[in-house]
Design a protein around this nucleic acid. Structure first.
Length: 257
DNA sequence: ATGGTCGTTGGACGA
């Protein structure tokens, strides 16, 4: 089973790339973030031509999450928001595929440490932690994937001194990420040997991708039962080299049946 | 080099 996550920064712009990537890489499940599409505009029929079912929770202009699958089994227990959070921002989508529970998140960016958006980010992460605590009790095989907008460690940052204390790397954010792991989740990427300077996001500006000035902020977190079955996890940089790319690369994890 | 780039949108704002 191949599971992937990709912040596409507008599915309208990136639809052709998503379809091409799915045809080439054949993920069984692909979680998308920043679709930036109202549900009425979601290209479900185009994706169905490639054999993909779609679940989506979107809004106009901002945010928006979706899960594509090519599985025989129908998803159940779909959740489109954090319980108890009355929030128009579409940032979470969860569904059960057989014995796998998948939670797809687009964590708030946070703008700048100390800002209102930063407080919203930390509150959102605290509510996510509470939600996942329950999900872990209900589902032995749980995967939490998406754009977390947090680089967990200095090795996930191209220049830790430059970034020290900034949004995406600050101690409160890293503590919130650690609290997710402390629930009993594993960072799938770090279960395996990885290349030095592995990142999943590069700013569009200043030739950041060409110079590999990036951050690893997109993650696949898995429960212990899934960890035992995980056979690989990697970042696929290729789509970031394509014309008019997303600023994020897909992250992929593979599991034994 | 005191900016640089995208996407959405039709002027900024978010990232």
């Amino acid at each position: 089973m191949r599971l992937a996550t990709w912040n596409v920064n507008s599915l309208r712009v990136r639809l052709g790339q998503v379809r091409q990537w799915c045809r080439e890489r054949r993920p069984d499940l692909l979680a998308l973030q920043e679709t930036k599409l109202e549900d009425a505009a979601f290209p479900a029929e185009d994706l169905r031509e490639d054999g993909c079912r779609s679940l989506y929770a979107g809004q106009k202009t901002y945010n928006g999450v979706a899960i594509l699958d090519r599985l025989a089994i129908t998803p159940t227990d779909v959740v489109t928001a954090l319980p108890g959070l009355d929030d128009p921002q579409r940032r979470l989508l969860a569904a059960t595929y057989g014995d796998l529970r998948l939670v797809n998140v687009y964590v708030p960016n946070g703008a700048a440490v100390g800002s209102d958006k930063f407080a919203y980010k930390l509150d959102w992460l605290a509510r996510l932690r509470d939600f996942l605590a329950g999900e872990l009790q209900r589902h032995e095989r749980l995967a939490v994937v998406g754009d977390f907008n947090i680089a967990p460690e200095d090795r996930d940052v191209h220049d830790p001194d430059l970034w020290a204390g900034s949004v995406l790397v600050s101690p409160p954010e890293r503590n919130a990420f650690r609290e997710l792991l402390d629930l009993g989740l594993h960072d799938a990427f770090r279960l395996f040997d990885q290349p030095e300077a592995s990142y999943s996001w590069w700013d569009y500006r200043a030739g950041a991708f060409r110079r590999n000035l990036g951050l690893r902020i997109d993650h696949i977190l898995i429960s212990e039962a899934l960890r035992q079955r995980c056979t690989a996890c990697y970042i696929d940089r290729e789509p970031r080299t394509w014309q008019r790319p997303s600023d994020h690369a897909p992250v992929v994890a593979e599991f034994a049946d």
